[in-house]
Design a protein around this nucleic acid. Structure first.
Lengths: 223, 223
DNA sequence: ACACAGTTGGACCGGCGGTCCAATCTTGGA
DNA sequence: TCCAAGATTGGACCGCCGGTCCAACTGTGT
């Protein structure tokens, strides 16, 4: 009641019109700069120098925004896998996703949150077609594809969650160090002691690559 | 300024005292009944018939609450794997987690959100010790363990996200049907057509089991 | 020249997690 | 036995969130 707001004459139309593209682009920028928790509609609209209501003419809600941003990143990865050898192509795809998540940790979280978003569909399709070229027959192909995709997405989420905790490499190393010490102190089981010492010196990317190899071996060994 | 609240004389102490245990128990109940989105501090304290501030004397925040609830469920699973044959034990562990997530979808989401929570540590430890009994040597064991854990957690998150969308079996089937139709319509690629038709008749649990088998084959084939 | 369809942005809403502290209970020492 | 000191409780309050709504303001077609 009684809105005394003085309507200033500053409601001028923007020269650079808002569009879904520009919004998604800005979303990626905000996510990269401030992380998943930093993406709020307020922050986004501030970054775009606009009001909150405006973006809802272009996207339905925040979930769609995240899905679109994720698809943007993943699309670039899946587009770039043109290897002739299907096994090499699968490795390249997996590592491409890993690297994308290294660069944009929020993608890892988002990918495993919603199984049937466009970005995940892209991954399924890529993996499926390479498995077909690899000669995996129909029914087994679904199982093999599901195994690979689940592995990749699982690793993605885990790695992304870690990267969220500790941004820089140095932070990350220190964090793992503390964690290993906690484990080792908390549980005297030799298995744990062993794992803790390996945690200190392990390389995420190499370990991820090794996992892909294990699945590929498992798939080809049963062909 | 000027708090005119009338302090009624109803601040009587509860006969059944609040405790961390009771709070975690109630958290699981609320999560099971209303899902992850339904777990709010307000809903939880209403369920416990207490005020919001009270629970913060027992848990630090909502994140700790979720971790504790998840650990509660996962603890029951990892405690129950006493098979002599390590390969069978791994299968039992994996399927146990799958079934736990089928019963409590929120566990799947939570597990892949935070890699170093107690529940995930339990899984790592179980997998690690079974792999050791399986005779996988040290360095390879870390790779194998990471691959298996990531696969299980990835599948868990995917399945949980699906279960979140469609609760009942009938809903789920209908949802997959719609989805398959969308895919098939949207993308004429034969790979997609094929995948869509398989999506209609696939069994999540069987597919998950097949993934574990692929992994085990991959491990033993390289030993 | 001008009406109208489409766009913009700020006020507003209900609800969230978390903090604070007066009121109240429990407990152990005199 | 009593009572001061400490632990526990719960509701008011805070700042912030995503999303809705609509008055004000264009660029465009006629």
């Amino acid at each position: 009641m009684m809105d005394m707001t003085i309507r200033t004459a500053r409601n001028t139309r923007r020269s650079d019109a808002l569009s879904r593209e520009r919004i998604v682009e800005a979303t990626v920028e905000v996510l990269d700069a401030t992380g998943e928790a930093g993406l709020t509609v307020r922050a986004l609209t501030a970054h775009l120098s606009t009001g909150r209501g405006a973006i809802y003419h272009h996207v339905a809600n925040k979930e769609e925004l995240l899905a679109a941003a994720t698809d943007d990143i993943v699309g670039r990865v899946t587009a770039g896998t043109g290897d002739d050898d299907p096994e090499r192509a699968i490795r390249a795809l997996a590592l491409g996703i890993f690297d994308a998540i290294d660069a944009h940790p929020w993608v890892g979280t988002q990918l495993s949150r919603e199984p049937w978003q466009p970005a995940v569909f892209r991954i399924w399709k890529s993996v499926g077609s390479q498995l077909q070229r690899l000669g995996v027959p129909g029914p087994a192909r679904a199982d093999a594809g599901s195994a690979l995709v689940n592995y990749v997405l699982g690793a993605a989420a885990q790695y992304a969650a870690g990267a969220r905790r500790a941004t820089s490499d140095a932070d990350r190393k220190a964090y793992l160090e503390t964690l290993a010490a906690q484990w080792a102190q908390h549980d005297p089981d030799p298995i744990v002691q062993d794992a803790a010492s390996q945690l200190r010196e392990h390389d995420d990317r190499e370990q991820f690559r090794a996992g892909v190899d294990i699945f590929l071996t498992g798939i080809t060994a049963r062909r």
